[in-house]
Protein backbone atom coordinates (compact mmCIF):
# COMPACT_ATOMS: atom_id res chain seq x y z
CA UNK A 1 0.00 0.00 0.00
CA UNK A 2 1.38 3.39 -1.02
CA UNK A 3 0.90 6.24 1.40
CA UNK A 4 1.59 9.87 0.71
CA UNK A 5 1.31 12.09 3.77
CA UNK A 6 1.28 15.85 3.88
CA UNK A 7 3.45 16.24 0.83
CA UNK A 8 4.72 19.67 -0.14
CA UNK A 9 6.52 20.14 -3.44
CA UNK A 10 8.09 23.18 -5.07
CA UNK A 11 8.01 23.83 -8.76
CA UNK A 12 10.82 25.88 -10.26
CA UNK A 13 11.75 27.23 -6.91
CA UNK A 14 8.29 28.33 -5.84
CA UNK A 15 6.20 26.37 -3.30
CA UNK A 16 3.45 24.74 -5.25
CA UNK A 17 1.81 21.72 -3.75
CA UNK A 18 1.02 21.36 -0.10
CA UNK A 19 -0.86 19.06 2.20
CA UNK A 20 -1.20 16.40 -0.42
CA UNK A 21 -2.48 13.17 1.07
CA UNK A 22 -3.03 10.03 -0.90
CA UNK A 23 -3.52 6.38 -0.13
CA UNK A 24 -3.32 3.76 -2.84
CA UNK A 25 -4.39 0.34 -1.64
CA UNK A 26 -2.89 -2.75 -3.25
CA UNK A 27 -4.46 -3.58 -6.57
CA UNK A 28 -6.34 -0.30 -6.79
CA UNK A 29 -6.24 2.12 -9.69
CA UNK A 30 -6.19 5.73 -8.58
CA UNK A 31 -6.68 8.49 -11.12
CA UNK A 32 -5.26 11.93 -10.57
CA UNK A 33 -7.33 14.31 -12.61
CA UNK A 34 -6.65 17.97 -13.21
CA UNK A 35 -6.05 20.60 -15.88
CA UNK A 36 -2.54 21.34 -17.15
CA UNK A 37 -0.46 23.05 -14.59
CA UNK A 38 -2.37 21.52 -11.70
CA UNK A 39 0.64 19.58 -10.53
CA UNK A 40 -0.34 16.06 -11.51
CA UNK A 41 2.91 15.23 -13.28
CA UNK A 42 4.92 16.89 -10.52
CA UNK A 43 3.13 14.76 -7.96
CA UNK A 44 3.81 11.65 -9.98
CA UNK A 45 7.48 12.45 -10.45
CA UNK A 46 7.82 13.15 -6.75
CA UNK A 47 6.31 9.79 -5.86
CA UNK A 48 8.63 8.21 -8.42
CA UNK A 49 11.64 9.84 -6.80
CA UNK A 50 12.60 11.96 -9.78
CA UNK A 51 11.88 15.08 -7.75
CA UNK A 52 12.35 15.67 -4.04
CA UNK A 53 9.53 16.97 -1.83
CA UNK A 54 10.01 19.91 0.48
CA UNK A 55 8.08 18.23 3.24
CA UNK A 56 5.95 15.20 3.90
CA UNK A 57 6.50 11.51 3.43
CA UNK A 58 6.09 8.79 0.88
CA UNK A 59 6.00 5.24 2.18
CA UNK A 60 5.34 1.79 0.91
CA UNK A 61 3.91 -0.71 3.38
CA UNK A 62 5.19 1.50 6.16
CA UNK A 63 8.74 1.70 4.79
CA UNK A 64 9.74 5.33 4.30
CA UNK A 65 10.94 6.08 0.78
CA UNK A 66 12.15 9.66 1.18
CA UNK A 67 15.70 9.87 -0.08
CA UNK A 68 15.57 6.53 -1.85
CA UNK A 69 16.72 7.03 -5.47
CA UNK A 70 14.21 6.25 -8.21
CA UNK A 71 15.94 3.14 -9.46
CA UNK A 72 15.63 1.57 -6.03
CA UNK A 73 11.97 2.21 -5.32
CA UNK A 74 10.52 -0.58 -7.39
CA UNK A 75 8.00 1.73 -9.01
CA UNK A 76 7.26 1.90 -12.71
CA UNK A 77 6.60 5.03 -14.70
CA UNK A 78 5.11 5.19 -18.13
CA UNK A 79 5.99 8.54 -19.71
CA UNK A 80 3.76 10.87 -21.61
CA UNK A 81 5.73 10.62 -24.83
CA UNK A 82 6.76 7.06 -24.09
CA UNK A 83 10.51 7.76 -23.91
CA UNK A 84 11.29 4.61 -25.84
CA UNK A 85 15.02 4.03 -26.30
CA UNK A 86 15.57 4.79 -29.97
CA UNK A 87 18.73 2.77 -30.27
CA UNK A 88 17.13 -0.48 -29.10
CA UNK A 89 14.56 -2.83 -30.55
CA UNK A 90 11.12 -3.36 -29.07
CA UNK A 91 12.32 -6.48 -27.30
CA UNK A 92 15.39 -4.75 -25.90
CA UNK A 93 13.28 -1.89 -24.66
CA UNK A 94 10.82 -4.16 -22.92
CA UNK A 95 13.59 -6.28 -21.48
CA UNK A 96 15.55 -3.32 -20.14
CA UNK A 97 14.17 -3.43 -16.63
CA UNK A 98 14.65 -7.17 -16.23
CA UNK A 99 17.96 -7.72 -18.01
CA UNK A 100 19.86 -10.54 -16.47
CA UNK A 101 16.89 -12.20 -14.84
CA UNK A 102 16.65 -15.88 -15.68
CA UNK A 103 13.10 -15.71 -17.00
CA UNK A 104 13.55 -12.42 -18.81
CA UNK A 105 12.81 -13.68 -22.32
CA UNK A 106 9.67 -15.41 -21.18
CA UNK A 107 8.46 -12.34 -19.37
CA UNK A 108 9.06 -10.16 -22.42
CA UNK A 109 6.98 -12.46 -24.56
CA UNK A 110 4.33 -12.50 -21.88
CA UNK A 111 3.90 -8.75 -21.49
CA UNK A 112 4.01 -8.20 -25.22
CA UNK A 113 1.10 -10.60 -25.48
CA UNK A 114 -0.73 -8.73 -22.76
CA UNK A 115 -0.59 -5.54 -24.77
CA UNK A 116 -1.41 -7.28 -28.02
CA UNK A 117 2.01 -6.93 -29.63
CA UNK A 118 3.05 -10.55 -29.75
CA UNK A 119 5.96 -11.13 -32.09
CA UNK A 120 7.17 -7.53 -32.09
CA UNK A 121 10.45 -8.28 -30.32
CA UNK A 122 12.77 -7.52 -33.19
CA UNK A 123 11.01 -4.52 -34.59
CA UNK A 124 12.74 -1.18 -34.61
CA UNK A 125 11.16 1.39 -32.35
CA UNK A 126 11.29 4.20 -34.87
CA UNK A 127 8.92 2.55 -37.30
CA UNK A 128 6.03 1.95 -34.92
CA UNK A 129 2.72 3.79 -35.03
CA UNK A 130 1.63 5.92 -32.07
CA UNK A 131 -0.59 3.23 -30.67
CA UNK A 132 2.10 0.60 -31.00
CA UNK A 133 4.66 2.80 -29.29
CA UNK A 134 2.27 3.39 -26.43
CA UNK A 135 1.79 -0.30 -25.95
CA UNK A 136 5.51 -0.98 -26.05
CA UNK A 137 6.00 1.69 -23.39
CA UNK A 138 3.30 0.03 -21.31
CA UNK A 139 4.78 -3.41 -21.74
CA UNK A 140 8.21 -2.08 -20.81
CA UNK A 141 6.98 -0.59 -17.57
CA UNK A 142 4.99 -3.73 -16.70
CA UNK A 143 7.78 -6.20 -17.31
CA UNK A 144 9.64 -5.67 -14.01
CA UNK A 145 6.41 -6.21 -12.01
CA UNK A 146 6.54 -2.82 -10.33
CA UNK A 147 5.03 -2.38 -6.92
CA UNK A 148 3.15 0.62 -8.22
CA UNK A 149 2.74 1.48 -11.88
CA UNK A 150 2.43 5.18 -12.60
CA UNK A 151 1.06 6.32 -15.91
CA UNK A 152 1.52 9.93 -17.00
CA UNK A 153 -1.14 10.82 -19.56
CA UNK A 154 -0.45 7.58 -21.38
CA UNK A 155 -3.04 8.02 -24.13
CA UNK A 156 -2.75 11.76 -24.53
CA UNK A 157 -1.20 11.68 -27.98
CA UNK A 158 -3.53 9.08 -29.45
CA UNK A 159 -6.60 9.80 -31.52
CA UNK A 160 -9.95 9.74 -29.88
CA UNK A 161 -11.20 6.47 -31.28
CA UNK A 162 -8.05 4.71 -30.19
CA UNK A 163 -8.25 6.31 -26.80
CA UNK A 164 -11.79 5.20 -26.24
CA UNK A 165 -10.82 1.68 -27.15
CA UNK A 166 -7.59 1.48 -25.23
CA UNK A 167 -8.56 2.91 -21.88
CA UNK A 168 -11.11 0.20 -21.02
CA UNK A 169 -8.63 -2.42 -22.21
CA UNK A 170 -6.02 -0.87 -20.00
CA UNK A 171 -8.32 -1.02 -17.02
CA UNK A 172 -9.12 -4.60 -17.72
CA UNK A 173 -5.42 -5.44 -17.89
CA UNK A 174 -4.63 -3.63 -14.65
CA UNK A 175 -7.47 -5.27 -12.81
CA UNK A 176 -6.82 -8.74 -14.18
CA UNK A 177 -3.23 -8.70 -13.06
CA UNK A 178 -4.02 -6.84 -9.86
CA UNK A 179 -1.57 -4.07 -10.62
CA UNK A 180 -1.52 -1.12 -8.25
CA UNK A 181 -1.63 1.93 -10.46
CA UNK A 182 -1.72 5.71 -10.41
CA UNK A 183 -3.11 7.17 -13.61
CA UNK A 184 -2.65 10.85 -14.37
CA UNK A 185 -4.83 12.60 -16.90
CA UNK A 186 -6.67 15.79 -17.73
CA UNK A 187 -9.51 13.97 -19.39
CA UNK A 188 -12.40 13.22 -17.04
CA UNK A 189 -13.81 10.42 -19.14
CA UNK A 190 -10.54 8.54 -19.01
CA UNK A 191 -10.40 9.08 -15.26
CA UNK A 192 -13.91 7.76 -14.79
CA UNK A 193 -13.26 4.72 -16.94
CA UNK A 194 -9.97 3.67 -15.45
CA UNK A 195 -10.14 4.35 -11.77
CA UNK A 196 -11.38 2.92 -8.52
CA UNK A 197 -10.59 6.17 -6.76
CA UNK A 198 -10.24 9.67 -8.16
CA UNK A 199 -8.27 12.63 -6.95
CA UNK A 200 -8.97 16.01 -8.47
CA UNK A 201 -6.14 18.54 -8.44
CA UNK A 202 -6.21 22.25 -9.03
CA UNK A 203 -3.11 24.46 -8.77
CA UNK A 204 -1.39 22.03 -6.50
CA UNK A 205 -4.31 21.55 -4.16
CA UNK A 206 -6.55 18.52 -3.83
CA UNK A 207 -10.10 19.56 -4.57
CA UNK A 208 -11.91 16.27 -4.07
CA UNK A 209 -11.30 12.56 -3.63
CA UNK A 210 -13.73 9.71 -3.97
CA UNK A 211 -14.95 6.98 -6.24
CA UNK A 212 -15.89 8.03 -9.75
CA UNK A 213 -19.55 7.66 -8.86
CA UNK A 214 -19.20 9.81 -5.79
CA UNK A 215 -17.36 12.53 -7.61
CA UNK A 216 -19.79 12.48 -10.46
CA UNK A 217 -22.84 12.56 -8.28
CA UNK A 218 -21.62 15.11 -5.81
CA UNK A 219 -18.94 17.42 -7.20
CA UNK A 220 -17.27 19.18 -4.30
CA UNK A 221 -17.65 22.66 -5.74
CA UNK A 222 -18.49 24.63 -8.86
CA UNK A 223 -14.96 24.45 -10.18
CA UNK A 224 -14.90 20.68 -9.96
CA UNK A 225 -18.30 20.53 -11.52
CA UNK A 226 -17.18 22.72 -14.37
CA UNK A 227 -14.05 20.69 -14.82
CA UNK A 228 -15.99 17.48 -14.89
CA UNK A 229 -17.93 18.86 -17.76
CA UNK A 230 -20.96 20.19 -16.15
CA UNK A 231 -22.05 23.23 -18.11
CA UNK A 232 -25.27 24.20 -16.32
CA UNK A 233 -24.20 25.80 -13.08
CA UNK A 234 -26.80 28.29 -11.94
CA UNK A 235 -27.73 30.21 -8.87
CA UNK A 236 -31.31 29.65 -7.72
CA UNK A 237 -33.63 30.58 -4.85
CA UNK A 238 -35.28 27.56 -3.39
CA UNK A 239 -38.53 27.79 -1.51
CA UNK A 240 -40.49 24.73 -0.49
CA UNK A 241 -38.93 22.45 -3.09
CA UNK A 242 -39.22 24.88 -5.97
CA UNK A 243 -36.15 26.48 -7.48
CA UNK A 244 -36.42 29.85 -9.12
CA UNK A 245 -33.82 30.82 -11.69
CA UNK A 246 -33.62 33.99 -13.68
CA UNK A 247 -35.58 32.38 -16.49
CA UNK A 248 -38.17 30.23 -14.75
CA UNK A 249 -38.90 27.69 -12.05
CA UNK A 250 -38.48 23.98 -11.67
CA UNK A 251 -38.73 21.24 -9.10
CA UNK A 252 -35.80 20.89 -6.75
CA UNK A 253 -37.23 18.79 -3.98
CA UNK A 254 -33.85 17.65 -2.65
CA UNK A 255 -32.71 21.15 -1.73
CA UNK A 256 -33.40 23.10 1.40
CA UNK A 257 -34.83 26.57 1.35
CA UNK A 258 -32.53 29.41 0.54
CA UNK A 259 -30.22 30.54 -2.17
CA UNK A 260 -28.14 27.77 -3.76
CA UNK A 261 -25.66 27.22 -6.50
CA UNK A 262 -26.73 24.08 -8.30
CA UNK A 263 -25.84 21.87 -11.22
CA UNK A 264 -28.49 20.90 -13.68
CA UNK A 265 -27.28 17.80 -15.45
CA UNK A 266 -27.54 17.93 -19.18
CA UNK A 267 -29.31 14.60 -19.12
CA UNK A 268 -31.92 15.97 -16.75
CA UNK A 269 -33.47 18.16 -19.43
CA UNK A 270 -36.33 16.37 -21.21
CA UNK A 271 -38.54 17.38 -24.07
CA UNK A 272 -41.98 18.54 -23.17
CA UNK A 273 -42.86 20.55 -20.10
CA UNK A 274 -43.53 23.95 -18.63
CA UNK A 275 -40.27 25.64 -19.61
CA UNK A 276 -39.44 26.92 -23.02
CA UNK A 277 -36.42 28.13 -24.89
CA UNK A 278 -34.84 28.42 -28.34
CA UNK A 279 -32.43 25.85 -29.66
CA UNK A 280 -29.48 27.93 -30.85
CA UNK A 281 -26.97 25.15 -31.51
CA UNK A 282 -27.26 21.51 -32.14
CA UNK A 283 -24.46 18.95 -32.41
CA UNK A 284 -24.92 15.34 -33.23
CA UNK A 285 -23.00 13.08 -30.91
CA UNK A 286 -23.66 9.73 -32.48
CA UNK A 287 -26.52 8.57 -30.20
CA UNK A 288 -27.80 11.82 -28.83
CA UNK A 289 -27.86 15.50 -29.61
CA UNK A 290 -26.04 18.18 -27.67
CA UNK A 291 -28.34 21.18 -27.80
CA UNK A 292 -27.75 24.69 -26.54
CA UNK A 293 -30.98 26.25 -25.32
CA UNK A 294 -31.27 29.99 -25.08
CA UNK A 295 -33.69 31.19 -22.46
CA UNK A 296 -35.81 34.29 -22.33
CA UNK A 297 -33.25 36.31 -20.46
CA UNK A 298 -30.35 35.32 -22.66
CA UNK A 299 -28.74 32.71 -20.41
CA UNK A 300 -28.11 29.30 -21.90
CA UNK A 301 -28.57 25.72 -20.86
CA UNK A 302 -26.83 22.71 -22.33
CA UNK A 303 -29.04 19.69 -22.88
CA UNK A 304 -28.46 16.15 -24.01
CA UNK A 305 -31.52 15.10 -26.00
CA UNK A 306 -32.42 11.91 -27.79
CA UNK A 307 -34.47 13.64 -30.42
CA UNK A 308 -33.51 16.33 -32.82
CA UNK A 309 -34.83 19.80 -32.43
CA UNK A 310 -34.39 22.19 -35.26
CA UNK A 311 -32.04 25.03 -34.71
CA UNK A 312 -34.00 28.22 -34.23
CA UNK A 313 -37.09 26.45 -33.01
CA UNK A 314 -38.66 27.25 -29.69
CA UNK A 315 -39.53 24.16 -27.80
CA UNK A 316 -40.85 23.09 -24.44
CA UNK A 317 -38.84 21.20 -21.90
CA UNK A 318 -38.76 20.21 -18.28
CA UNK A 319 -36.04 19.54 -15.71
CA UNK A 320 -35.95 16.26 -13.79
CA UNK A 321 -35.36 17.10 -10.13
CA UNK A 322 -33.17 14.00 -9.81
CA UNK A 323 -30.69 15.75 -12.05
CA UNK A 324 -30.37 18.80 -9.87
CA UNK A 325 -27.38 18.69 -7.54
CA UNK A 326 -26.58 21.29 -4.97
CA UNK A 327 -23.03 22.57 -4.64
CA UNK A 328 -21.51 23.69 -1.35
CA UNK A 329 -20.29 26.93 -2.97
CA UNK A 330 -21.93 30.15 -1.90
CA UNK A 331 -24.00 31.54 -4.70
CA UNK A 332 -23.58 35.08 -5.96
Amino acid sequence: MLEVRDLAVSFEGEPFMHHVNLTVPDGAVVAILGPSGSGKSTLLRTIAGLESPDAGSISWNGELLNGVPPHARGFGLMFQDYALFPHMTVGANVAFGIEGHPQADRRVTEVLEWVGLAGYEHRSVGHLSGGEQQRVALARSLAPEPRVLMLDEPVGSLDRALRERIVPQLRELLVRHQITAIYVTHDQEEAFTISDQMVILRDGTMMQTGTPEQVWSFPANAWVAGFLGFSNIIDVDVSRGVATASWGTFDASALADGRHRVIVRETAIELGGPLSGVATERRFRGGHYQVTIEMRDGSTLEAELDEATRVGDTFAFSIDPEGVVGLPDSPA
Binding site: A48, P69, P70, H71, G74, F79, A83, F96
Partner: peptide, 26 residues
Amino acid sequence: RQDLRDAAAMLGATPARVWRRIDLPM
Protein backbone atom coordinates in the same frame (compact mmCIF):
# COMPACT_ATOMS: atom_id res chain seq x y z
CA ARG B 1 16.81 13.60 -23.61
CA GLN B 2 16.54 13.62 -19.86
CA ASP B 3 13.32 11.62 -19.93
CA LEU B 4 15.14 8.69 -21.48
CA ARG B 5 17.44 8.67 -18.51
CA ASP B 6 14.50 8.99 -16.15
CA ALA B 7 12.75 6.11 -17.89
CA ALA B 8 15.83 3.97 -17.47
CA ALA B 9 16.07 4.90 -13.79
CA MET B 10 12.44 3.99 -13.28
CA LEU B 11 13.21 0.61 -14.81
CA GLY B 12 15.75 0.01 -12.12
CA ALA B 13 18.98 1.17 -13.77
CA THR B 14 21.58 2.63 -11.43
CA PRO B 15 23.18 5.91 -12.59
CA ALA B 16 26.17 3.97 -13.89
CA ARG B 17 23.92 1.70 -15.88
CA VAL B 18 21.96 4.64 -17.21
CA TRP B 19 25.23 6.09 -18.46
CA ARG B 20 26.33 2.87 -20.04
CA ARG B 21 23.09 1.83 -21.70
CA ILE B 22 21.50 5.16 -22.56
CA ASP B 23 24.06 7.94 -22.80
CA LEU B 24 26.99 5.98 -24.06
CA PRO B 25 25.39 4.39 -27.12
CA MET B 26 23.83 7.67 -28.12
